[in-house]
């Protein structure tokens, strides 16, 4: 890998990391279990590996943004996550910030 690619991939990773939480929150107005969320995000162009997503979900639950429930009806037990009322509020605020940020970024990098 050339030096440019190497630095670029590191920078891209940083850039994506900041968008992960808002991506995850956006999909959880309906209950989802971890792996279905991976597939769902993947289909919308956001790649997240399960080894990152599962711990992240637990952390968000601990912060009170998500609530969870085990579903034992299916073939194997799965933990479903859903936005908590607080999560909904935080997600709305994050979306607002995101839109402001996108507008500012547009001004910065411009569209010729």
């Amino acid at each position: 890998m050339g030096e440019v690619e190497e630095v670029l991939s590191g920078q891209l990773q940083e850039l994506r990391r900041g968008t992960l939480i808002i991506s995850v929150l956006s999909q959880l107005s309906e209950p989802q279990y971890g792996y279905s969320l991976v597939a769902m995000l993947e289909s919308k162009g956001i790649t997240i590996d399960p080894g990152t997503l599962y711990p992240l979900l637990r952390r968000l639950e601990k912060q009170g943004l998500l609530k969870s429930e085990w579903d034992t009806q299916e073939t194997r037990p799965r933990k479903y996550y859903l936005l908590s009322p607080m999560g909904i509020e935080v997600y709305d605020q994050l979306c607002k910030e995101w839109r402001t940020m996108v507008a500012s970024m547009e001004q910065l990098i411009g569209t010729d």
Partner: peptide, 8 residues
């Protein structure tokens, strides 16, 4: 986490 990982 054990349950969760097996499921995953």
């Amino acid at each position: 986490i054990e349950k969760e990982l097996h499921g995953l």
